[in-house]
Write a protein that binds this DNA or RNA. Sequence first.
DNA 1: AGCATTTGAGAGCAGTGCTCTCTAACGAGA
DNA 2: TCTCGTTAGAGAGCACTGCTCTCAAATGCT
Lengths: 239, 239
Amino acid sequence: MCATLSDMPAASIRARARAEMINEIKTIARRHLAAEGANLSLRAVARDMGMVSSAIYRYFPSRDELLTALIVDGYHALGDAAAAGDAGVTDRADLRGRWLAVCHAVRRWALAHPAEYALLFGSPVPGYAAPQETTVAAARTPATLIGILVDGFATGALTDPGPSELPDPVHADLAAVRDSLFAGLPEALLARGATGWIHCFGAVSFELFGQLDGVIGAREEYFDHQMRRMCDLIGLPCP
Amino acid sequence: MCATLSDMPAASIRARARAEMINEIKTIARRHLAAEGANLSLRAVARDMGMVSSAIYRYFPSRDELLTALIVDGYHALGDAAAAGDAGVTDRADLRGRWLAVCHAVRRWALAHPAEYALLFGSPVPGYAAPQETTVAAARTPATLIGILVDGFATGALTDPGPSELPDPVHADLAAVRDSLFAGLPEALLARGATGWIHCFGAVSFELFGQLDGVIGAREEYFDHQMRRMCDLIGLPCP
DNA sequence: AGCATTTGAGAGCAGTGCTCTCTAACGAGA
DNA sequence: TCTCGTTAGAGAGCACTGCTCTCAAATGCT
């Protein structure tokens, strides 16, 4: 009945009710998103809650704010799925196995939540600029992937490919990312990880957005094949 | 004044006026798309044409039909850009140079027409199922890329990597594609080409849909670097 | 117990896609 | 050249959307 939120220990009754209300709105909005696709209707959500549409505005100042909340939740759900995929591999030294596990976890989450995935990675909403809070949530999944490379470099399983494979300006951009998130990781390895993440995103989007329709039937095998090829490119050894 | 359409040589005056009207609607719709983003308003288009909204329905039975027409046009424009990029490389034996030229042409087109690109490769419209005519137009760009591999295999510059790198079900899917579009090309090469195309799409989408914001500043160099790495993976030799 | 805050209802505005009816114009055949 | 049937466009209207504003009721805090 009362879902205790860990970050508000002695919340007032009103604040509690409010938090529950917000959760219910988001849940119903997610259901609508899954059923109808991207064009989420505030009025329809309100109707499903037995409320009038203007009441929703007590909890979300606009439809965009609701979408932002769903996006942040979505990034975190995807990040959780990715982290769980990584954690499910018991042999922590099996870098390739961990990488593949995370990629498949991302794909499975996307297939299970296509509308939310489209919200995260599809065409951006016209006048919509992603606020800061979305970008930190968005970073979790690539961070999980590149964390595998960090582990590999720390144990000596991966070595620095050297700076020669990167153009200078990219070198600088990646150094900034490395310094803020992946201390000690060579830029070339970071670049390889980013390439792997982009290809994972590309392959999932390609499949989910219908570009594979009528061409490839064995979707999972095809995805697995592609991710293995990326492992080769990254330099993740077969155990 | 009279843009002659090659496929209607002796069109009646009415048919000519109608074709021009359809073109004008599409042109204005494209302008709106570029300005406002994906949520195209029929009424706004009608207003810009000095017509009432219901008049548009004389030319397009629904908003979705207008979007479909724009999508088909977009695929063809992208296909033209890709083909022009390939044709711009005078040394036809420089497979890597041709591949990179096509990839950069795709990216340039996408940056110049972001809303149209999003229409083609972004989240699919909810109840919208792509009709057959879109898929044949969509195939032109990957066909240009894989045509480079066909050339390379024909001249002996590329060799069959062998079937071992493909799982069986994917093998069968690719064989069907090969037989209908790229006669004689080994499946493994086709698979490598598809991977390259998917990564090109992924990298462009990643950049265009804002996932690179605040991370990579040197966009073109980064894209170039990634495409070169894909050339390595595909096995396109440096000239 | 009283009060101030919060909540929801309801009406309303401007916009949307789409349908229907009606009139005016216009091209094609005689 | 003149008539006639097709067609383009106008206009009203329906159901829907996001959002704002006002008002009354409920509700938690002091």
